[in-house]
Every structure is written in C-alpha cells, then in structure tokens.
Design a protein around this nucleic acid. Structure first.
Lengths: 209, 209
DNA sequence: CCGGATCCCCAGGGATACTG
DNA sequence: CAGTATCCCTGGGGATCCGG
C-alpha cells in the first residue's frame, strides 16, 4: 500500500497493517498458531491466493511473521507470528471489542468459525471468581467445536473439545454469543433454539471486564 | 469496501472502518473536534476530495459521525464524531502504541502535525505524581504548537499554547518524541539540536503506563 | 474561498487457471 | 500442497470544474 506519508504513530501503523486482509491474517495466526498456506486460505474465505502470498511476503519483510520449516513428517513451511506480530493483539482486541455490537444481526451467507466467537467472548470477560475451581464451556456453533476455559482469574479460548465441559452451548452463533455476552437470558436462548446441557450457573463466572 | 463476509467481531469492525483513510479521518476528528471539510482535507495530506466526501458519507451512514450546521457567523457544515465514533478511541490508541517504534526513523517528506506527536506522547504516559501541582509542556515542532498537560493523575494533549508552560521543547519531531518517550536523554537531545527552556525535571512526571 | 462533483488514469484486489 | 501467472474490474489518486 502507498504510504500515508505522515509522521504519526497511527498513520505509520496503518502503513504496515492497514491493507485489506492483513489484520485478518494476523488474527488467524494469533488464534490458530503457526499455520500452513492452505490453512490460512481456508480460514480467510474469499482471499485470492496471489493476495495471500503477497501479504505473507510483506508481513515477513516487515518482521511480523516468520517462515518455519516443519519437521520431516509434514515437510511443509509454516507461517508464525514473531514477537512484533504478536504485539498486535491489543489492536485486534480493541477492534473486536468495538465490532461486537455489530454482531447482533446475522448476515445470511457470512462465513463462520467457532473460534472467532470464542475469542470474542473471552476477550471481553474476566473470571469473576478466581478462587473457585476452573470451568470449561464447550461451544458447538458450527462444524468445528471451540472451548472457553475460565479459572485462576483468566479467561482463555481455543479450538477443540473440553475433556469434561461444565456447560455445553449448541446452536446458532448469534444465540451463543448473545448468551455469553449477557444480551439475552437462558430462557430466551433456549426458546429461540439454543441447546444447553450442563450447569448454566457457570455463566456467572464470566464477568464484564 | 466489499464485506469480508465473516461472522467475526474483528472482520465486522474492519468492514466498517477498514478502508483506506477511514481511521485517519476519525483520528482527525478525535484530535481536532468538529471540523469543516477543508480542515479535514488539510489534515489528511494527499486525500482526494471525492474520497473524503465519500468516506464522510459512509461514516455518516454507519452512525460514526454527524453533520452539524455551524451557527450563523460561520454558516458552514461541521463534521463531528458521534458517541459510537468516539468509542473508536481505544482502537486508535492501540494502533498508535503499536506504531510508536516505527517512528524512530524520520522519512523525508513525511507530513507532520504537532498534535500527532502530543497525542502519541500522552497516550503512553501516566501522571507519575498525581498529588503534585499540574504542569504543562509546550511542544514546538512545526508551524503550529501543541501542549501536553499533566496533573491529577491524567495526561492530556491539545493544540495551541500553554499560558505558562513549565517546559518548552522546540526542535525536530523525532527528538521531541524521543525525549518524551525516554528513548534519548536531555543531554543527547540538546546536543542533537533540541532547544529546551524551562525546568527539564517535569519530564519525570511522565511515567510509563 | 468553501464544499464538493466529475473525469481520467492507474495501482491494487478478485477470480481462476496453471505449475513445481 | 504451495504457491505463480493471468485477466478483468473496482476503487484510489490527481487534477479540474462548478455551485453557493
């Protein structure tokens, strides 16, 4: 991208990460960890392959990501964030926080990955009772499951399944997020089509930050 | 901009503010307050007028800014941030924080406005001694002056002049920012061409956040 | 002079085909 | 699987023009 040509921290930042797709690539690497080209492509529906390879090259030149050669069994190259790339997390968190109200309406055809939702939920919540035993909330809102783990004052999200979830939420993304964010209550969620198993009381562990 | 088509808070946010120039327009309105079309154009060197008017229209449609009719003496329309627009400040702050290391090198020809620098300095500093009397630092790093005011635990920046600054820094932007950020010390700054008047000890009031 | 609208040109994005 | 090459088209940059 053409530089803004301004001696300003914000403009300088946008010179590097302001291009289309760039911050979403960082999001993907942040949530998924080191990823292959195809993994990134699948996580970024609609991106053209030439654009993806171009962006990866730019990000590498700017020191935000690094290529790793995966060990023999895989024998492919992985893209991973550097420390400087990882330091973009506060930016993505602020952006995600700001974008949360835009999620109340679900656009038909929008792609969806459960870890996006888990990250959104984890990023605005805190563990309201750090002394209590840790709990896990299983989210099933697409083909792939995700987990929110709360305990010791921390809230984390990851893809996959919990070994013994205290609560499982299964249903449309909008309802899962609505319930987690406290925008709707359990009664309304279930009557709207959300399937809840386990102990709904663990939702109280998610306090507003 | 074409939507990313993802049900993700970050992607949704970028759908709204991810286009070129958009966040810089918000920065301008945040730092300058309600502004006229021409003021924005002057603060955004290189933007095409059709782009600016288009962006302003989009931002208005999305509810981030509102047009105001200025009172009779001026009789022009002003653009001002709405609450939702102002709520983007954490995003800009995070971006600015991330972009600060990119400021160590000064690109020839980069446009510069002192309030950018004042904002950068104010956004990463805290008042290290809230009990002490408030102090004002006058920055002269271009044609227009800016002020950093520290007191009562808060750090604020604004354009203009302080009535009785405790410290005045005058010189190249890189040196002013370097000194404020603690990247260089007073001796090196003065010997490199920074002109300092007043009491340099007030710099100690700017603590790292 | 302010607040745009219009026009032209080109860089960059989108979609797909193709190759090591 | 991991890209590169190609083509098309949208959207940005730059200048100019026009109404208030």
């Amino acid at each position: 991208m053409r530089s803004y040509g301004q001696y300003c921290t914000i403009a300088r930042a946008l010179d590097v990460v302001g291009e289309r797709w760039t911050l979403l690539i960082v999001r993907e690497l942040l949530l998924q960890g080191p990823s292959r080209f195809t993994d990134l492509k699948n996580g970024l529906p609609g991106i053209a392959t030439n654009l993806l390879s171009g962006r990866l090259k730019d990000l590498e030149d700017d020191g935000l990501i690094a290529r790793e050669d995966a060990p023999p069994p895989v024998a492919t190259t992985l893209y991973a964030l550097t420390d400087q790339g990882r330091s973009l997390e506060p930016v993505l968190k602020a952006l995600g926080e700001w974008g949360r109200p835009l999620m109340v309406v679900e656009h038909a055809g929008d792609a969806f990955q459960p870890q996006w939702l888990a990250y959104a939920a984890a990023s605005f919540a805190v563990d309201s009772d750090p002394q209590a035993a840790p709990v896990a909330i299983q989210l099933i809102a697409g083909d792939k499951p995700a987990v929110i783990e709360v305990g010791g004052g921390e809230v984390h999200s990851r893809v996959g399944r919990a070994t013994a979830p205290d609560l499982t939420l299964e249903g449309p993304p909008r309802l899962v997020l609505g319930l987690l964010a406290g925008m709707i209550d359990v009664g309304r969620a279930t009557s709207s089509g959300l399937h809840i198993t386990g102990n709904p009381d663990v939702l109280a562990r998610l306090g507003r930050a």
